[in-house]
Computed example of a mutant assay.
Amino acid sequence: MPLTGPALPVRRVRADAREPVDAGAWFARVPAVAQVLRDGWDLGAATVLVGENGAGKSTLVEALAMAFGMGAEGGSTGARGVTRASESALWRHLVLERGAGAAKRGFFLRAETMHGFFTYLEDNPSPADLAFHEMSHGESFLALAEDRMRGRGLYVLDEPESALSFTGSLALLAHLRRLVAGGAQVVLSTHSPVLAALPGARVWEVGGWGLRETRWEETDLVLSWQGFLAGPERYLRRLDAE
């Protein structure tokens, strides 16, 4: 039967039965991670993770990127830049079910390690590299995404909004939308309701319950921002009372 569209680089993430997780591993006690190890996790052409700090979003996208062959601190498949190893061993316990004939290229943009990644690029230059350290924080993030995320492949982003203004977030959203429309796969962890609105994305809310697929407009992220913008004084009074 002919394919109806480009095969996904990663259709599903599941536990590797050959590499059982130690019961004492901290990441196995995170509800979202435990759910993936138990039930697996189906990905779409665009997948968005939202949720509070510490819920497991970054742990999951980091492990996905590493299992695909990307560096823990960001970069393309095969990147080896390391400043301080702090990643979990979760990736060693995962199997990625890939689409037949899918693209093998990928890139991981991780906000918290981008300064070190730019230094890694300076220390290992290629003629086509941009001078990322000479740009503003937000400009460098957008330039990196547009320069390294091209064509079909798996593109993983962890909280890129940390460097971006509202208009910068819209610019990144437009780029991600074009990537997906062109047959790429995007997996995004974010606290930004703008980026979480990636058209056509499967939105997964992460929390004490684990992972649950949710409509964008029904996520706590969107409802909280709507409530605050409609009446910030209510939230400020609550803070004063604490």
Rank of each mutant, 00 (worst) to 15 (best):
190 T>V: 05
165 S>H: 05
198 L>A: 06
170 L>V: 04
145 A>M: 01
162 S>I: 05
150 R>S: 00
179 L>H: 11
236 L>E: 15
162 S>V: 11
170 L>C: 11
144 L>H: 04
183 G>K: 09
214 T>G: 00
148 R>T: 00
230 A>W: 02
175 H>I: 07
172 L>N: 04
231 G>Y: 12
161 E>N: 09
201 A>S: 14
144 L>T: 12
227 G>T: 07
167 T>W: 08
222 V>G: 03
203 V>Q: 03
216 W>Y: 13
176 L>A: 03
217 E>D: 12
170 L>R: 13
173 L>Q: 08
237 R>H: 12
224 S>F: 14
229 L>E: 14
230 A>R: 15
165 S>G: 06
202 R>M: 11
166 F>K: 12
160 P>T: 03
175 H>Y: 04
171 A>C: 02
186 V>E: 03
220 D>G: 08
153 G>L: 08
223 L>N: 02
196 A>N: 04
152 R>F: 01
174 A>R: 15
228 F>V: 14
167 T>F: 08
233 E>T: 11
198 L>K: 06
172 L>R: 12
164 L>N: 03
215 R>N: 01
172 L>Y: 07
149 M>F: 11
165 S>N: 04
214 T>K: 09
169 S>D: 12
195 L>H: 08
199 P>I: 11
148 R>H: 13
234 R>T: 13
148 R>N: 02
192 S>P: 07
177 R>V: 00
156 V>G: 00
216 W>V: 04
236 L>I: 15
236 L>A: 14
162 S>D: 10
235 Y>I: 08
233 E>M: 14
179 L>S: 03
151 G>Q: 08
165 S>F: 10
163 A>Y: 09
228 F>W: 15
197 A>P: 01
234 R>Y: 07
213 E>A: 14
201 A>C: 08
176 L>F: 10
187 V>P: 08
185 Q>I: 05
171 A>Y: 00
212 R>I: 01
188 L>D: 10
160 P>K: 10
225 W>P: 00
225 W>K: 07
195 L>D: 02
150 R>T: 13
159 E>Q: 12
189 S>P: 05
203 V>N: 02
230 A>Q: 13
237 R>Q: 14
184 A>I: 09
212 R>W: 02
191 H>F: 11
198 L>F: 09
176 L>E: 11
198 L>H: 10
183 G>M: 05
202 R>H: 12
213 E>D: 10
